[in-house]
Nucleic acid binder design. Structure first.
Ligand code: FES
Ligand code: FES
Lengths: 135, 135
DNA sequence: TATTAATGATACTATAATAGTATTATTAAT
DNA sequence: ATTAATAATACTATTATAGTATCATTAATA
């Protein structure tokens, strides 16, 4: 059972690489691929998605590439997880496809929601910048 | 992105039902199905697995059914998640299928491992018994 | 303006996980 | 012997994961 998917992982590494090596500047996918040994076409799709979601800016044409749309200090792991894995849901109690009639008073659900909040907060605190400094 | 799978959810409900309605006694799958509206054949496989994993005891033959192998106070959500979803892994950094050369010094990994520990602890604290009382 | 070096969009594929169903065998009480 | 339970195992359908492949578009620059 994996919490972090491959896309999220690769995206994070690409972002870390960009922050470390280019700062505000533009980086091409090829550069990332060469340094991080990630599958090229797959990474292309990943950074394209990051651009669509407003985390990177894409620059087409010669001398193009990608740069940050937000400062690396404002990009947290929860943002990237949401891009590739959707909302993290610790409490998906279902009843044959319908919402459980129990939702409101279910004690398990309440507990899980509280854990969910904690995790969310922790993930929110992990930013590209913080890891760059902290490692 | 779901943290709890259907199996885990159904298993948990079955166990809650058993603890609430039978205590130490034997309960049949049919009884659970009727009260909890779960898909019968699927639930059969689920409780069979719980029996295999030492959480329930199965009693074959007439007047058979399932009973607890461990006291409901000692069955925690993490146990059930492990049965159906394997070990919870918050830190699955992979590099093209090989273990990342970075493993030891990776700051992200360290952070995620710490979150993982917290979640683990919380899930360990949620037992059938505690929810039965607490709700 | 033609070339080149970049991204964009979209479709395709393979494998595994999830969420079940179906069938036949075994066991134990009565 | 009958009956009421579980055991084992195989099957199926759908979705998620982890990619690959192809062709179009854009912008710098020689
Ligand atoms: S059983 Fe439905 S919300 Fe908990
Ligand atoms: S990048 Fe490999 S363990 Fe973090």
């Amino acid at each position: 059972m994996n919490f972090i998917s491959r896309d999220t992982d690769y995206a994070w590494r690409a972002l870390m690489f960009m922050a470390k090596n280019a700062g505000e500047g533009v980086v091409t996918v090829d550069e990332i691929v060469q340094e991080e040994y990630l599958p090229e076409r797959f990474l292309r799709r990943i950074v394209q998605k990051l651009a669509k979601k407003g985390i990177l800016v894409s620059h087409k044409g010669k001398k193009g590439g990608f740069s940050f749309a937000k400062s690396p200090g404002k990009i947290s792991l929860i943002d990237i997880i949401k891009v590739f894995q959707g909302n993290v849901d610790f409490t998906n109690c279902l009843l044959k496809g319908k919402v459980c009639p129990n939702v409101k008073k279910c004690a398990l659900r309440r507990k899980l929601q509280s854990i969910s909040k904690t995790v969310d907060k922790e993930l929110r605190g992990i930013t590209i910048m913080s890891l760059l400094k902290g490692s």
